[in-house]
Design a protein around this nucleic acid. Structure first.
Length: 318
DNA sequence: AATCCGCTCAACCGCGATCAT
DNA sequence: GATGATCGCGGTTGAGCGGAT
């Protein structure tokens, strides 16, 4: 938190009066001005909002204040255990893309989630990793996090949570509609195989974000006896590599934000022919490469759309 | 009661993306 | 295509609070 500047104070600079913009904490009066303006005029150009609302703030500051504090659809208060697990789940898929995570948690802001992650969850993970695997180093990259947090939540739980938070955070029908448009339910957990290590039919689809310049971008070696990972550093390529225990598939660079789509399969199951899902998955990926994969044109939404086109990934993504 | 220390969280900063001119 | 304005995002900072000493 920062000390608020003196409200409405005009500073002088070499004799000329400078209408200095305020920084720091917002006063109740400023909140009131911004709230009143937003409710009657709605969102426009933020620098105009700042000016027209009579605020000596930059538009950026107004935007932040509105988004993180004044928005009427915000859900205040502590995160529930369900929300916490949802955050972990989403972070495992999206990495530090807080805005993407927040978009799937109606009533919560990216700042709020980010703070919660950095203060609470990160700390918890750290203490957990110190008592268990040394492989849990902190990372902004998505991974099969923790392989544990979500085990207590069923697919139904997650879906219900999403719907609950969506509806409870809105007081008007208009808002409810807006939120439901914004929010899309999560993919069923079993399709992501969280915590299903060793279960028949295990496979793992993960997206690797923000790995520019991080060496080979490798993460998530499981060491659980069913697979390692094979990883192609920068994709613009497609490959399937196998060794005794592993099949790893990496579909190259999607765009600046998404470098790799990486799919791990239990090669033993494939070899034994007892995992049709994985085989189909691999076929689907091959199909991608031939027909759908247009390098440099994907973004996350496109990627998610393509991921859900997998026969066994039956969910909707915004 | 005073001080220290760790934690939380509101807000700022810097950067990249996007859009208008 | 170049430039500038604006927006949105993620990382970081630091005030304030509460618990420990």
């Amino acid at each position: 938190m920062r000390k608020p500047d003196t409200p409405g104070k005009n500073n002088t600079n070499n004799g000329t009066i400078v209408n200095k913009l305020r920084k720091g904490l917002w006063s109740p009066e400023e909140d009131d001005k911004l709230m009143t303006y937003m409710m009657s005029n709605g969102q426009g150009c933020w620098s105009d909002v700042a000016r027209n609302a009579g605020l000596q703030r930059c538009g950026k500051s107004c935007r932040l204040r509105w988004i993180n504090y004044l928005r009427p659809d915000l859900k205040r208060g502590a995160f529930s255990p369900q929300e916490e697990e949802l955050i972990i789940h989403l972070h495992s898929m999206l990495g530090n893309r807080w805005s993407q995570i927040a978009a799937r948690m109606p009533g919560r802001t990216d700042n709020e989630i980010k703070n919660f992650w950095n203060s609470t969850i990160k700390k918890r993970m750290k203490s957990a990793s110190s008592t268990s695997s040394p492989n849990n180093s902190d990372s902004s990259e998505p991974r099969d996090v923790m392989g544990r947090g979500l085990m207590s939540l069923s697919e139904h739980d997650i879906m219900a949570m999403c719907m609950d938070s969506s509806s409870s955070s809105s007081s008007s029908s208009t808002q409810t509609m807006a939120m439901s448009n914004q929010f899309q339910p999560l993919p069923p957990l079993d399709k992501y195989c969280y915590g299903l290590s060793g279960a028949p039919g295990y496979f793992n689809v993960s997206t690797s974000l923000s790995q520019v310049g991080t060496g080979n971008g490798y993460y998530g070696s499981s060491g659980h006896g069913f697979l390692g990972d094979v990883f192609v550093p920068h994709l613009e390529s497609f490959s399937i590599e196998e060794n005794n225990t592993t099949t790893g598939i990496t579909i190259g660079k999607i765009n600046n934000n998404i470098n790799n789509v990486h799919i791990n399969c239990d090669i033993n199951n494939i070899i034994n022919g007892n995992n049709n899902k994985v085989e189909t998955l691999v076929e689907s990926v091959n199909h991608w490469e031939g027909e759908n994969l247009k390098m440099g044109e994907w973004d996350l939404d496109d990627l998610m759309e393509d991921v859900i086109s997998f026969p066994y990934l039956d969910f909707q993504v915004e």
